[in-house]
Design a protein around this nucleic acid. Structure first.
Lengths: 252, 252
DNA sequence: CGGGTTATTGATGGTGTTCAAGGGGTGTGG
DNA sequence: CCACACCCCTTGAACACCATCAATAACCCG
């Protein structure tokens, strides 16, 4: 793991002479944000963006850090600008369900009461826009378009969650892995554009806990897909060799 | 099945002399609606309710009818005022995932694009407030509190969906059934108040498809819970004999 | 090179599925 | 009123998929 506190891929270029070099707490310049066009801030006018900018705080995290734990008071909500965050719920006996992986453009804190019902950990170095929750809620009520946009995002997430229920409830192991790869690739495309190789910042265990399987089952299925020349093992991910057969694994 | 087109438990008492006796298309009087206090209309002021009322249309359905099918153009959204609706996604090979059961106060059409991604069928006789989607969307943008309320509902649904992911992904069969009973009871309480007996308008197959199990497994687990005097079989549902042991089945 | 973590692969086993048969309720028609 | 069909549910037996257990391999930094 690299040890420099790199503010990689951030939405902020230090314009003010008072450069902020700490890992957290930098001011935000939305105009230059790379997720501006598809994050929660999309489709907001300059005035609204200005309001958001004023309560936003740029924060950076290294890989394998914790944004918050289940049960923590929900003091802030987050818009991811770089990296991947794993959201999970833990049962008391050690079982774990990964609720999702948040990537640039994603918003964390939609389904939140006063405290978080899941934990969030970084899989890679991560940059976020953090918003004080009280102020964000306040702004939402004053700025209907922001509310509207957030509702859009929440509705989309709900649909995504429902599709995942089908995967968890009614699909076999191989279908789950195929569905994961296809859906993950679709999401990456929105951030980085189409690519034959699928970056996988999460480990096998994370995929297993996301799909309701064991790490061994996931590993075996990856191995089979590679043996059958559907996938090719590449560093930090997989390359899709045969799109047709990958999609064919997933009846709908 | 009773054959009279009964407008049972509706939010509308016919005040106007022009009584509407058809099964669908009656005007709406929200002031007398029994779900007024917890449905999407909750926490709206009289003016907003008036707006809603104007675009609402009371509709009634008998049991085992279809509100809409997956793929249908999403012409309307619905607020349930009586009865139970089953939401499901069907795979091409016959597998089925029940996404949820909608009861009075619930809103259908949150996670919707231009077409529905799931089907909705009535399990009992059902009454709904139907809203033309275009008009509803329009009203939402004009009435921020309505938008806010809808976002509240969507957020809550998202949290509920995430919890269901844990159930589907990481819980054993008995835990799933226990979780279903506990969560279903909680929801019924908000409508009808606390009761030792849990009404179950859905069949075993529906529960199985909701929990990602087979009907046989669900049946066996119900049988076991009754043999162990945790549940008692009653018509149209179950009675909880031992709350403690039911809750103890569900580690968290 | 060495220690720890993560992934792979094989052997065995269990939970839940599948297949099969029968029970119980309800509505219908003789 | 009973016979019958139909649907849903229940129960038993065999099986399959995936989990578990175990050992080894690959990897990554130290």
């Amino acid at each position: 793991m690299t040890m420099n506190v790199s503010v990689q891929l951030n939405s902020v270029e230090q314009r003010a002479p008072s450069a902020c070099t700490s890992a957290t707490g930098c001011p935000v310049v939305c105009a230059q944000c790379r997720v501006r066009l598809f994050a929660v801030c999309a489709a907001l006018d300059d005035e609204e963006i200005g309001d958001l900018e004023r309560i936003a705080e740029q924060q950076s995290f290294q890989a394998k850090q914790t944004l918050f734990m289940s049960g923590d008071a929900a003091a802030a909500v987050y818009s991811i600008t770089a990296g991947t965050v794993r959201l999970q719920r833990d049962l008391s006996d050690g079982r774990r369900q990964v609720i999702g992986f948040a990537i640039p453009g994603d918003f964390i804190g939609l389904a939140m009461e006063d405290s978080f019902s899941f934990s969030a950990d970084t899989l890679t170095d991560v940059s976020v826009c953090a918003f004080d929750r009280a102020r964000f809620t306040d702004l939402m009520s004053k700025r209907p378009p922001l509310m509207g946009r957030l509702h859009q995002v929440a509705s989309h997430e709900l649909g995504f969650a429902q599709e995942h229920m089908v995967i968890l409830g009614r699909r076999r192991a191989e279908e789950r892995v195929a569905a994961f790869l296809i859906r993950w690739r679709e999401r990456l495309e929105k951030v980085s554009g189409r690519s034959a190789t699928i970056q996988l910042p999460m480990g096998r265990q994370d995929i297993a806990d996301y799909l309701g399987l064991t790490i061994e089952t996931v590993s075996r299925i990856f191995a089979r897909l590679m043996r059958e020349r559907i996938l090719l093992d590449v560093p930090q991910g997989v390359r899709v060799l045969d799109d047709q057969r990958l999609l064919a694994l997933l009846p709908d």
